[in-house]
Write a protein that binds this DNA or RNA. Sequence first.
DNA 1: GCCGTTTTCGGCCCGACTGTTTTCAGTCG
Length: 571
Amino acid sequence: MPVRNADIAAVFDEIADILEVEGANPYRIRAYRNAARTVGAYGQDIAALLGGGGTLPKLPGIGADLSAKIAEIAATGTCALRERLRREIPATLVALLQVAGIGPKRAKLLYHDLGIETEAQLLEAARAGRLRRVHGFGEKTERKLIDALQTRLASDRRVPIGHAAVAVDDLLAALRACSGVRSITVCGSFRRMRDTVGDIDLLAVSERPAAVMRCFTGHASVRDVLAQGPARATVVLRSGLQVDLRAIAPESAGAALVYFTGSKAHNIAVRRIAQQRGLKLNEYGVFRGTRRIAGETEASVYRALGLPLIPPELRENRGEIELAAQGRLPELIGRKDLRGDLHVHTRSSDGTADLAVMAEAARSAGLEYLAITDHSRHLRIAHGLDEKRLLRQMAEIDALNARLEGITLLTGVEVDILEDGRLDLPDRVLARLDVVVGAVHDHLGLPRRRQTQRLQRALAHPHLRILAHPTCRLIGEREPIDVDMSVVIACAAEHGRWLELDAQPLRMDLTDRDCEQAHAQGVRISIASDAHGPRDFLWLDYGVGQARRAGLRASDVVNTWPLAALRKALR
DNA sequence: GCCGTTTTCGGCCCGACTGTTTTCAGTCG
C-alpha cells in the first residue's frame, strides 16, 4: 500500500495523542501536531517524491528529527517512536481524550489509580461512584462524565456548514433582538467557511453582557447549559449542536473577532508576531504594556502587527501570514462576483420546480445566466433524460429565453459517466448543447486505478466541459471515491476542462485543498449550486466560501465571467 | 521538537470557567 501524506499525518497525530497522555513536554506535542497539519496539507505526494529520489524542501516547523521520521514513515508506513509508544499506552486510553472533561492528566490518573482504559470502563466506574475516590474528582465531575459519555456518540459528529446555518437561525434572530446587543457574529470554523463545523461560536458585542447571557441560556432551542459565566457560556441545542457565546465590549470587538474566529494555529502565529514586536495580543486588544493600542476592529489589530486584514477564510496558518506580510494576499472572489450557475435541475429529472421557476429564482439570487443540467437516462432513479426528452427541453429553453428578461438560460445536461468512462448520451446530442457537465453516480467502489482511468477518459471526451462533484463524497454519509486527484487535475489541465465546486451542503466537492491544487495547475473552477429547487441557490454562499479558502480570485471561476466571454470559452 | 537582526539554550499564546481546593489545577477554546 502506498503511504499517502494523510497517513504520515495520522502517525504524527497518534504520537501527539500518546505523548499527551504521557504528560510529555507540551511544545514537543505541538511540534508533532503542527507537523501533522503541514504534511497533511502538503501539495505533492511525499512518499512518491522521496521514493523517486527527490528531497523534501524545508517546511516550517519540520527540522532534522521530523524530516527523518517523515522519510521513515514514507518508506515503512510507521516509525519506531510510534511503535514504542503504542506498547506503553493502550490505544483505547488515548481515545478517552475525546470525552468532554477528560484531558491528558485525568486520563493518566484514571489509568494509574483505577486501571481505566476504555470509555465503557469509565462509564461503569462513574456509575458505581468509584471516580470520586480519585484525587481531583468529585460527585459533580462524575455526573458530568456520565452525561458526556452517554451523549457522546450522538453529538460528536461534525455538521455540514449549510445545515448548521439552518440550525442556529432562530437563536441568532433572538439574540440580535435582545436589548443592548450591538452585533452578533458567527465566528469559528463557520466564519472561516469550513465545509463542516463541530460547534457554533458566537460573539456578542454588547455593553450589557449579563442580559445577553440570560437571553442566550434561556432560549427555547437550548437543551442544556454546560457552562455559564459573566463573559462566556456554552449550551447544547435540542438539535445536539453545541453553541458557545462570548460577550465582549465594543472597544474590544475586533480583537475578540480575531480570537474567536481562529483558527487556533492562526491565533498562535499572530500572537507570536505581537510578542516579537514587544506587544501582547489577547481577545481584548493589542497591548503595549498595559496600554491598549488596537482592538476595536479586526483591521486595527492586524495593522498594529504590521499586517493587512487577512480574510477569515484564509486564517489557517497555511502561509497566509507570510503572504500578508509581503502584501501578496489574493483579491478573493466574493458572492457578488457570481453571474451564473452551470449546474441545476428541474422537474424533468429529480428537481422540484420547472424551468420558469428556476429561472426566476436564479434571477432573484442576482444571477444573469443559468445552465439547465438535468440528469441523463442512465440515472433512472432521477428520471434521467434520453435524447428525445433532452431535445424537447432544449426547444422549451429556446422558447422561454425569448420571453425571459434579466436572465438567460443555457442548454445543458449532467450526463452520467459510465463505468468505463464513456458518456451516457450520443455525441450528436451532446454537440448541440451549450454546456455538458459530466458526473459519476454509480460504481463508486472501483479500485483507484480504474476509477482514475474512468475520469481520465471522460475528461478527454471532446464534448465534456465540466466534471461535476469530482470526489462524489457525501459528508458524514459516504466516503469520496478512491481516485488519484492529482492525475485527474493534470488531465483536466491538459484538456482545458473545468472542475466543479459543488456547493450542496452534503457535497462541498471539490474540497478546499483539491480546489487549491487545481488552481495551482491552472484549472478553472465552476462554483455550482447543484440546485434541485428554487431555494437552493443560497448554497452558492458556501461554495464561494470554500473557493475563498482555496485562494481563488473571481477570474479563476468561470461563472463569474460575463455571458459573452463564457459562451466564447464554451465554443 | 523547533528555532534564532538580542539567543545554539531557553524560550515556545493567552484567558475563561469549573470543581475541588483552601490558593489552584485541569480543561477548553
